[in-house]
Structures are given as C-alpha cells and as structure tokens.
Design a protein around this nucleic acid. Sequence first.
DNA 1: ACCAGTCTGGACAACGTTGTCAAGTAGCGC
DNA 2: GCGCTACTTGACAACGTTGTCCAGACTGGT
Lengths: 328, 328
Amino acid sequence: MKDVAARAGVGLKTVSRVVNGEAGVSPDTERRVQESITALGFRRNDSARILRKGRTASIGLVLEDLADPFYAPLSRAVEEVARAHGALLINGSSAEDPAREQELVLALCARRVDGLVIVPASGDHRYLEPEIAAGVATVFVDRPPGHIEADQVLADSFAGARDGVAHLIAHGHRRIGFIGDRPGIHTAHERQRGYLAAMEAAQLPVHDGWVAAGTTDPERVRADAERMLSGPDGVTAFFAGNNRVTVTLVRVLAELDRPVALVGFDDFELADLLVPPVTVVAQDPAQLGRTAAGLLFRRLEGANDPPRRMTHPTRLIARGSGELPPAT
Amino acid sequence: MKDVAARAGVGLKTVSRVVNGEAGVSPDTERRVQESITALGFRRNDSARILRKGRTASIGLVLEDLADPFYAPLSRAVEEVARAHGALLINGSSAEDPAREQELVLALCARRVDGLVIVPASGDHRYLEPEIAAGVATVFVDRPPGHIEADQVLADSFAGARDGVAHLIAHGHRRIGFIGDRPGIHTAHERQRGYLAAMEAAQLPVHDGWVAAGTTDPERVRADAERMLSGPDGVTAFFAGNNRVTVTLVRVLAELDRPVALVGFDDFELADLLVPPVTVVAQDPAQLGRTAAGLLFRRLEGANDPPRRMTHPTRLIARGSGELPPAT
DNA sequence: ACCAGTCTGGACAACGTTGTCAAGTAGCGC
DNA sequence: GCGCTACTTGACAACGTTGTCCAGACTGGT
C-alpha cells in the first residue's frame, strides 16, 4: 500500500480510501491510484485490516467429520449463510475427540473468528466461558453444550425415535432391537430414551439384550444385530440410532433369509432405491445448519436476549422396510 | 498482553517469551506470568501474530460443493494433512461458478493463506498469477488449471472411462450411451474422449444421439436416457460420466421392464446394495486430497522444482450392473 | 576486588491497515 | 477582497504481536 501511494504520488490514507471505496476522493486521483494498484498487483492485506478493525468476517465451524454425509450438508448450509453475510468459513473436524475439539475451538478463537458453530464432541464447554465473555458468539448445533448456557439448535431426537419405534409397533412388532451410539452423546441418549418410551407406552417389555449402545463400528453392530436376531425370541425389527448403524443393518439384513423390519434415524441418499426401501426418521441437516448460522449472525448483529434452544421436528418417511410385518 | 505484563510486573517481551515457550525466562518469572495469563484469561491474538510473522498457518480449499459426496472426503483429507502441519483450513464452495471461484480465491489470498488447494470451476486462472508470484503455493486437484502452470493432481479420467466402456463392450454391448457433464469441464471432456476411444477401438459406430453432455440435472438426464433407450436401435447399456448421473440412471433403469447395463464413473456409498449392484470406475477422492495437500506442503517447505502433474489411476469395480448382457 | 561470561529482562521498531483530525484548496455570495 | 462552506488530502497514532538489541544482574575464577 505504501508502494502504491508512492507510485501514485498520494498519501497512504488516500489509497486506503480508494481500496475501500470510501467517498471523498476526486475522480482524477482515484484513477491514478487504481492505475498504480493494478500496475503493482496490490491486494489489501486482510490480516492487518483485521488487526485494526477487530472483526475478522470469518466464523468457525467445528463438527465431528466433514465427510460424514449427515454433516456435509450442514457445513454447506452454514457456509451459504456466512457467504450471504460476507464471512468466510474456517472449519475443522473434531473426530469425536473432546481434546481435539477444544484444541480446534481455541485455535479458532485465537484467530479471532467472530463466531463459532459447534457440534460438540465433549460434554464440558466451560473452557469456552472466557471466549464467550470476550464476545465470541457461539451456537451449538445437533447436540447441546455441557455446563454452559448458549444458543443451541437441535433436532427432536426423543420424539423422532419414539415415533419411529411406535411405527414399528403399529405394524405388529413386539420384539424390537435398538442399536445406537454411545449414550454419552446427547442425541444417542435421547434416541434410546425415545425407544424405551415407545416400548413402555405400548406396554412392551424390553429384554436386556435388545439394546446395544456402544459404538457404530460395523463389526460390533453386525455382531450385536446377529445376537439379537438369534434364538426363538429374536427381535423381528430394528430401530437404528443413526445413519451409519442403519447402513450396516441394511447389509446384515440383506443376508438373511427372512424379512426383518428396519427404521433408521437420519435419512440418506438412495435409501429409496434399496430393497426394501428404507423407512427413516428424517432430520434436515441443512436446515439445522441454516438455523444455527442464522442465530449466530443475529447475535453478531447485536441481539443479546437470553440463549435459546430451538428444536426442529423430525419427519417419518415410510418407504417399506418399516412396514414389513413380523416374520412368524 | 500489555495487561498481563503489567499485572505480572514484567516487560511485554517477557510475556511473549512465556507464551511462545521461548528460552531465557527464569522459572520464577514464568510462574508469575502464567498466573497472570490465566487470571486475565489472556489468549494470544493470532491476527497480530500473523501480521508480524507473515505466515498464517492456514490454507484455503476451494471446491465445487462441500456437501458433494465426492468432494467431502477430499476436503476431509486435505484437512487432516493441514492439521498434521499445524495449519487450519478455510474452505468455500464455488458452486461451479467461475466468478464465485475467483471471488473466493482472492478473498483467501487477501487473508494471506499460505497455500491454496483448488478444484477449478473456471477455465482461466491467470488472475492467480500475481498471487503465485507473491508466494502463495497453489495446487489444483481433480481438474487442471487454465492458462497457467501449477501443480496438479488428477485422476485418469480418460483411461478410466475407456476401460469402463471397454468392459461393457466385452460383455457384448454394441449400442452404448454416454451421459456426462458439460465438456467444458476437463474431467467430463476426458471421460467423453475415453468413451469415444473405446468405441473406436472396438470399431463400433457411435450414433449422434448416444452422447449427451450437457447438465447433470436429473430431469435432463432422465429425458436423455429415455430418448436413447427408445426405438428398435435403442442403447443396451450406459456409461455415466459421474456419480450424480449414475444415481439418476439407476432410478431411470429401475423403472424399466428390461435389464439395461450400467457402468458409472465414481464410486458411491451403497452402490453394492442396489439391485443390481452398480459397477463403477472408482477413484479415491481422499487420496486425491492427500496427494494435493502433500504437494502443497512440500512447496511451503521450500521445494521449488517445476510444477508437476500427478495422475492417479482409476479402478474398475465389477458388481453386476456392468456385466448384464444386452437385452435382445 | 575485579573481570569475563552467562543469564534474564525490557525498550523499541516494525508488520499493513484504518480512524481521527487538521490543513489545504476551491467555489460562492456579499 | 473577505469570510464562509464544502470538499479533498495527508500526517499520525493505534491495533497486538515479535525480532533486535542492549542493559543490568549474577556467576565463578583469578
């Protein structure tokens, strides 16, 4: 910028004015400055600008895995909202590791992002208190924060799972297995609660072995499913706690010689083309992302009402696999 | 930092030393400084640090759509490599719009990212010349840059498509349709070339109507496919130019009363569970991302040999849909 | 007691930008 | 010609950090 000013024979501030399109520069001067800018290939250094202005026009997004088909649309939606507000998106995957989440979040804060959208991997976010106090707007999405108050955007996991299981019960199933993620994860816990609530509402007993909530590792899921299916009292239907479990179960069930009903939490591409087409409890990840980012920018624009929790309903999409009757 | 120094009763530079773990601070002083840091909730301002040091420890990734199942793993792979080098990832989606690509790239350059990984949407990257001259390492992935020399990491679209079509021919097909993306996109063009090369190698004529290369819009693809299938000389097999086309074709073919063979470029989740399972020419997007990011950091570490093009082979995965014989 | 060498700590400038403020110039009505 | 306003312009400080350089205190050997 100094060079541009020197070449155009004007002051530093005048160049700054031209670069930022501020008023109060004569057309003649402006032309000279523009000429110098292109001649020297000058591009404003936003690091310095950020330092001076205190706003970075960038927001951070921390989620579990950028490549997960559930989170990718969420990420894209946040990006679109950010773009509409002239902000860039810095994102990182926590890989479901609390330490890595914290490391990422603090790195983003050190970069002075204006705001954060977080899909929590950890259960304790008190480490964020000083940052929030320092003015970093923060919105949690998909799962609530731990031990702090903050905006949060969630899907109604409990009701979704309850309705999904009730759907199976309505189609005649009495012995239904639940396979989900670690109950330490809020959504996983809620879905398991939903499963239990539906069973209880129908006055159905829940056998100990019918609930598996550990990992989503395909091998483990497969083993759990096969265990639940075995014996004369094996389950006749499954409720899957998330899309990864659902996909694994589809594979397991495809190898059986009898039909077993399946309802999965989370919709996924091609679910309608499988045989049978998979019935799911769908949430809209892009919608979650849009809402969260919207909330974030509302804060950045000055809204300071108390933190709110927004819950999005889920939608049951019956496609076939959830309507299979129990095999005798 | 000033406050921390005041509270600990030391100089500014001493705090800086403690924060950066530099040597030359007595344990006693260090303790006092640490205490002040936590008491005041101080966090280093990386904007200022960046301004001073000239390195941002962040890289930019611009691709077509973060949420596309093909690009999401690529993005994740780049992130992992960046993380291993202590860098953050800023990314944006170009939505296949050259203007938006340029806008994003220049915004990233203004932020002084150390390097760029780009999946080009535009065919002309001369706008990057001043940036590259200024030292921004740049690697193009999936598609080559336009009108400039730079590192590039590509999959072998031509050979992949040629082999995929040859596979169909080997299974007895003579009338094969090709549906792909705009030939303005390098990969799309290469795949179309591969299709034509395979047909020519087998001395098979290519009817005008058998090649549709416009959009990947499902409605258009459906219409094109139905046109190619109609009449006594309709095609008996399709080669799909990318995963979106493949998925649309799966839907179209599922509605037919006769089997039509299909080989698609790009693998996708659940391809093996469809009926029939879909034969694909697979490339590994994560591998592309890893290689590109690796190349980028090699440059950042000082390598300055001439730009290189790395081509990754594709792999044909026969699953069933590509081995169907021609319907009579 | 003195010197050389080592260790610790701080003053200061610089990174590239923008906000503040004041100075300079031109135009205008009287 | 005078005083006024309106407009254009530039000098300077500041944002928060780090690199350079120097000063002072301490150590141990003579």
